[in-house]
Computed example of a mutant assay.
Amino acid sequence: MNVFIEVENIKCGGCVNSIKSNLLKIDQVDDVEISIEENTIFVTGLVQKSAILSKLNELGYPEKGTNSVLKKAKSYVNCAIGKLNE
């Protein structure tokens, strides 16, 4: 099952790095493609959309239309972590 999600809070390469590295840790995720410009994520693999959404929410990158101040704050922290690991 491939999963396509429009998300909030993707700002830069640090965000992309953090999202990709965390999603690839989920069992049966084969590949992750992220568009900063479109705020979209495309996941290839035999994984449920709910598992992807759960991890994205945890990281501060919720599905489009479900953002909050707390999720924005989490995204800044994970963005910084992603920048450190580039």
Score class of each variant (00 low, 15 high):
Asn2Phe: 14
Asn2Gln: 13
Val3Asp: 05
Phe4Leu: 12
Ile5Asp: 00
Ile5Cys: 00
Ile5Pro: 04
Ile5Val: 01
Glu6Tyr: 12
Glu6Pro: 03
Val7Asp: 08
Ile10Leu: 07
Ile10Gly: 11
Cys12Thr: 12
Cys12Lys: 09
Cys12Glu: 09
Gly13Glu: 06
Gly14Glu: 05
Val16Asp: 10
Val16Lys: 07
Asn17Met: 11
Asn17His: 02
Ile19Ser: 04
Ile19Trp: 12
Ile19Glu: 00
Ser21Met: 08
Ser21Asp: 07
Asn22Arg: 04
Leu23Ser: 02
Ile26Trp: 04
Gln28Ile: 10
Gln28Leu: 10
Asp30Val: 11
Asp31Ser: 14
Val32Asp: 07
Ile34Phe: 00
Ile36Gly: 05
Glu38Pro: 06
Glu38Ala: 15
Thr40His: 06
Thr40Asn: 02
Thr40Ala: 06
Phe42Cys: 08
Thr44Phe: 05
Thr44Ile: 04
Thr44His: 00
Gly45Arg: 09
Val47Asn: 09
Val47Pro: 06
Val47Ile: 07
Ser50Trp: 03
Ser54Gln: 14
Lys55Trp: 07
Lys55Pro: 13
Leu56Ile: 04
Leu56His: 13
Pro62Val: 04
Glu63Pro: 10
Lys64Val: 08
Gly65Ser: 09
Gly65Val: 02
Thr66Phe: 12
Thr66Asp: 03
Thr66Lys: 15
Asn67Ala: 14
Asn67Val: 14
Val69Cys: 04
Leu70Trp: 15
Lys71Asn: 05
Lys72Cys: 01
Lys72Thr: 05
Ala73Gly: 15
Ser75Trp: 00
Tyr76Glu: 13
Tyr76Thr: 08
Val77Lys: 10
Asn78Ala: 03
Cys79Trp: 04
Ile81Phe: 02
Ile81Leu: 00
Gly82Tyr: 03
Lys83Tyr: 09
Asn85Val: 12
Glu86Asp: 09
